[in-house]
C-alpha cells in the first residue's frame, strides 16, 4: 500500500517508537517474569527511571518507606504494575501532544487512551484475558491519529461536514477524504515499529474486530473499552460520538449489555485514579 506508507513517511514529527513496551511485554509473558530484566530495560532510559520511581513513591501506593532505587520499587509493586506505570508514562510521551487536525487539545488524546487502557484491563480481568497485552493494545489504539492529524488539518472542515449529518462516522469520513483511516494507519505504524502481530491486528481492526482474526478477541477488548471510555465522557474533539458501535465485539467476548453496565461501574471507579495520574505532575 504505497500511498499509505508514504503518508507515514511524510510525518517527520512522529515520536520515537515505544519499543520498550514490546520488550517489557515479552519479559512479562515468560513463566517467571524476571524482575532484574524489567529493571534493566527501564534503566536504559534515566528520565523514565526517575519518573517510574516517583510514581512508585507517590501517595497512591501508600508505602511507608520510600523506595530508593528501581529494583526495590519493582519488588514492592510487582512487575505487572510496573509495566502499567511504564506504559502510562511512555504512552503520555507518545500521545500527549495536541492534535489540531482532530480538534484535540494537549493531553486529551492521551487521557482518552489512558481511560481506554484501564477499561480494557478491567474487562480482561473479569473475563480472564491477558491484562498487560490488552492494556497495551488499548493504550495504543488511536496512535494512527498522530499520523493523520498533520494530514487532516487542512481537510478538517470537510470531515466535520461529513460527520455533521450523522451519516458518517469519523473513521468513514477519514477514509472518504484522506483515503485512509486511523485504525489501519495505527496498525501499519506499529508494524513498521516491529510490534508483535497481535497488537498490530488489534489496533488495525479496533473498529471492526472480526477482521482481526486470529486476534479478534484482543481487538474486541479494545473496541469495547473504546466505547466504555466514550460513554464515560472520555472521547475527545468534535463530534466525539461519530463512532460506530459494533455488537460483534460483545459476541466475540460473550458478554451482554448488562455486563457492559457492570464494566462501566468498575471503570467509572478507576477513572479518578487515571485522571490524577495523567495530570502533568508525576
Amino acid at each position: 500500500m504505497q500511498a499509505l506508507d508514504s503518508i507515514i513517511d511524510q510525518v517527520h514529527t512522529l515520536p520515537p517508537a515505544p519499543r520498550i513496551l514490546v520488550e517489557l511485554l515479552a519479559v512479562l509473558r515468560r513463566d517467571e517474569a524476571d524482575a532484574s530484566e524489567v529493571v534493566r530495560l527501564i534503566t536504559f532510559d534515566p528520565a523514565l527511571t526517575a519518573q517510574v520511581l516517583r510514581r512508585c513513591n507517590s501517595a497512591h501506593y501508600g508505602f511507608a518507606e520510600l523506595a530508593r532505587d528501581l529494583p526495590t520499587a519493582v519488588l514492592r509493586i510487582g512487575t505487572g504494575e510496573i509495566y502499567r506505570i511504564v506504559a502510562n508514562l511512555v504512552g503520555e510521551r507518545t500521545l500527549g501532544a495536541a492534535q489540531r487536525g482532530y480538534g484535540i487539545e494537549q493531553g486529551e488524546l492521551w487521557k482518552h487512551c489512558a481511560v481506554t487502557a484501564v477499561a480494557a484491563q478491567l474487562v480482561a480481568r473479569e473475563l480472564g484475558g491477558d491484562e498487560s497485552v490488552v492494556f497495551t493494545a488499548a493504550l495504543l489504539h488511536d496512535i494512527g491519529k498522530l499520523v493523520l492529524s498533520t494530514s487532516l488539518e487542512g481537510a478538517y472542515a470537510q470531515v466535520l461536514v461529513q460527520t455533521q449529518d450523522s451519516r458518517f462516522s469519523f473513521l468513514e469520513a477519514e477514509k472518504a477524504i484522506l483515503g485512509v483511516q486511523h485504525a489501519e494507519v495505527g496498525g501499519r505504524l506499529l508494524a513498521r515499529w516491529n510490534f508483535p502481530d497481535n497488537l498490530v491486528r488489534a489496533v488495525w481492526h479496533h473498529h471492526d474486530p472480526l477482521q482481526a482474526r486470529p486476534d479478534e478477541q484482543l481487538a474486541a477488548y479494545v473496541h469495547l473499552a473504546d466505547m466504555l471510555a466514550h460513554t464515560l465522557g472520555h472521547g475527545y474533539g468534535h463530534q466525539a460520538y461519530a463512532v460506530r458501535c459494533r455488537a460483534e465485539a460483545l459476541d466475540i467476548l460473550e458478554v451482554t449489555s448488562q455486563d457492559l453496565e457492570r464494566f462501566l461501574i468498575s471503570t467509572a471507579g478507576s477513572v479518578e485514579e487515571v485522571l490524577t495520574l495523567t495530570s502533568t505532575a508525576s
Binding site: 450523522s166 462516522s169 466505547m227 466514550h230 460513554t231 466525539a240 460520538y241 461519530a242 463512532v243 460506530r244 458501535c245 455488537a247 460483545l250 449489555s257 457492559l260 453496565e261 462501566l264
Partner: peptide, 14 residues
C-alpha cells in the same frame, strides 16, 4: 445522553 452511531440497542445507554 450522547449516543454512538447505529447503536442498535447495544450501547444505547445515553
Amino acid at each position: 445522553g450522547a449516543q454512538f452511531m447505529g447503536s442498535n440497542g447495544v450501547f444505547s445507554i445515553g
